[in-house]
Design a binder for these strands. Structure first.
Lengths: 203, 203
DNA sequence: CGAGTCGTTGAACGGAATCAATCGTCGTGG
DNA sequence: CCACGACGATTGATTCCGTTCAACGACTCG
């Protein structure tokens, strides 16, 4: 899908930063931080799933991000004094916390790291914009075809469960399964264990 | 909606950079750049609308971004030798092109500018993630309520046509109108010229 | 005064969500 | 080892909500 490298924090942060970082285990429902907590660190998800949500006056929430393995979390917090949303583990999760000040200091000392971070953010942006646009494609058949077409190789390796991919595409997993089945039926794709192969590529 | 400042490039780029920038007028359908063109500049939309789209082998396209006034365009190009998508004016548009090298040089010379750019990207990311999550909310009524709830003040000033807001929310304008009408009917909001006022805020 | 666009409502259709049931696989513990 | 539960994958049936098409009024602009 993406023409940019995978946005995994391990490729962005230098080892020197990683040593000053703290690993944390989070049980399901446990808070990583609360709204209005002072910002101490920028976080990266190593495993599990962390949700960011903004509490509303009436006691409800609006979810603003769901971060999975490899994702960075609340990068904008780097430029804020306090958090403006809650962070909660959806499942048992492991996160890496890099102290805010260490990060800013390193940016200051080492240009290449600052630039690498900028590149990371730019890639993320590109990917998200793409995701938004692809979700606007209707019906499901065309959306899935577009998603397939964005992959450079005709063989798409499924590194995640189809269920997760469905969510990324903004479809329920049922509809995604059905659509894939329909595409295979009419010969647009072939399915092999753990991968999808594009055959014709008409949208 | 956002708790961060508006992401307008005029607040990020220092005047020194803006002087070295070039204004370009783009007619509808005209290309700002093509895929595989060498990256010369990073662009900002001053007026109109620019679409980024990735050409497919079969002659089709997948749109990856639609940028409006104030938006930066293809920031990731700053780290690439060639463009990997086309940029086309959807309507008559004016863009500002800041030479890639000027930008990188300035980042190198002036930390504060580099940091401002990082902050800009972080805010953009946050906003996009929020947009994605809000578009997952169904049905339309709840989505609109969530969108309203994200605004800090109970009076939401409509700076853009409702049509555009509908698009941002991932709804057709008809459904958006209807939903607003329904919300007003049951007393959840009140509408005054150019603004919407939250009254009750239950989701 | 028309042309164009936004805002608004109506009616009908279609496609995706939802609910439900089944199968396979994997890991866990008795 | 097998039973059990959890979860992914899959398909069916039904419902419902958002899209689409259509029409109209208000407003702005040339």
């Amino acid at each position: 899908m993406r023409s940019s490298p995978p946005a995994d924090f391990r490729r962005i942060l230098p080892p020197s930063l990683l040593t000053s970082a703290r690993h944390t285990w989070l049980q399901p429902g446990a808070y990583l931080f609360h709204q209005r907590d002072p910002v101490r660190a920028v976080y990266f998800v190593e495993s599990g799933q962390i949700a960011l949500r903004r509490p509303l006056p009436d006691g409800n929430f609006v979810v603003t991000q769901v971060a999975g393995p490899g994702d960075s979390l609340a990068e904008a917090a780097l430029f804020a004094e306090i958090h403006h949303c809650d962070a909660i583990g959806m499942v048992q999760s492991q996160v890496l916390g890099v102290p805010k000040q260490s990060m800013l200091d390193l940016f200051d000392r080492d240009h290449s790291v600052a630039l690498a971070w900028t590149r990371h953010l730019s890639w993320q942006l590109q990917e998200l914009r793409q995701r938004i646009e692809i979700r606007d494609i209707r019906p499901a058949r065309n959306r899935v075809l577009a998603w397939l077409a964005l992959h450079d190789r005709s063989e798409i390796v499924l590194d995640r469960p189809l269920k997760d991919l469905a969510r990324e595409l903004g479809l329920t997993h049922e509809v995604f399964y059905r659509t894939l089945a329909a595409l295979e039926r009419d010969g647009s794709i072939q399915r092999r264990k753990g991968m999808i192969v594009r055959t014709r590529s008409q949208i």
